[in-house]
Write a protein that binds this DNA or RNA. Structure first.
Lengths: 141, 141
DNA sequence: TTAACGTATGAACAACTCTACATATATTCT
DNA sequence: AGAATATATGTAGAGTTGTTCATACGTTAA
């Protein structure tokens, strides 16, 4: 998901060195290549999508769309173990997708990244789900 | 990414059996739980995000946002090996995210799933990238 | 036909992920 | 103080993923 190693050999063909004559439409290749996002952005974006690529995390984040919740309530809502929820929230917290508010021994989590929330909502809608809660977001198709 | 096995034990706590008294806000849990998307939709959505969770595939799909391209041009544009591109496109084709048009020995790929395209575009925008090509899509934020 | 070409596929390996269980920490209650 | 509670963390193992290299397939050119 984070892809530290698998990403290693990915940038073999740099910006300049065209090593291969195997091009069908050289003009288009040059144009599109010049419009490609920066490597760092590609990797970051893939990482964000990676955070959303696990059903457990999708459930957790979907639950949090309804607002702040403590760990045990998230577990009860999603059907995941409390340990599993805690691990998942740790990961999401490390990427600043969620944030914690602590009160006594309780930990209340909430969504902290509107970009991720919007991607999730859009995905849920496209997959056929219509939830009641909505973040600020226009209607697509 | 496909998560066949890791997903297995995920639905332990079914719809009815509340095995734990560990609830802080039982009312909210019941409400939010009733609004959760179907398991099948969660798994499908996670799989879709999983397709976007690899930098190589993000590059390939981003290139295809500019329109149909053959395998070798995609490889040249993205800096990936032709074999790698072929493998990735096979995966994306299996999920109907891209489609092929064959002409002689060439294979021209294009985006076939507007949902995925929109998620990708939104992600690219949020990550700071502004490409020239746009699919039909309103402006956010 | 044979050779070259563009693409597709198979297999193997290292790296990574998720889950489960055990344990740790911090807070509250008695 | 000690026990119970809510959450956090460590670790190990099974499973999955992406890459590479080799090879196969279908098409065109000679």
């Amino acid at each position: 998901m984070t892809g530290t190693t698998h990403e290693a050999a990915e940038l073999t063909a740099g910006t300049d060195s065209e090593c291969s004559a195997r091009l069908v439409d050289a003009g288009k290749v040059a144009l599109v290549k010049s419009q490609m996002p920066r490597d760092i952005d590609v990797v970051e974006l893939a990482a964000i999508f990676g955070l959303l690529s696990d059903p457990g995390r999708v459930r957790i984040l979907t639950a949090l769309l309804s607002g702040e919740m403590c760990v045990c309530d998230v577990a009860a809502t999603t059907g995941l173990s409390e340990s599993g929820v805690s691990h998942a929230l740790r990961l999401l917290r490390a990427s600043r997708v969620v944030e914690v508010r602590r009160s006594g021994r309780m930990a209340y989590y909430s969504l902290a990244d509107s970009h991720v929330s919007i991607l999730l909502e859009l995905g849920l809608k496209h997959v056929g789900h219509t939830g009641q809660q909505r973040l600020a977001m226009a209607d697509f198709d």
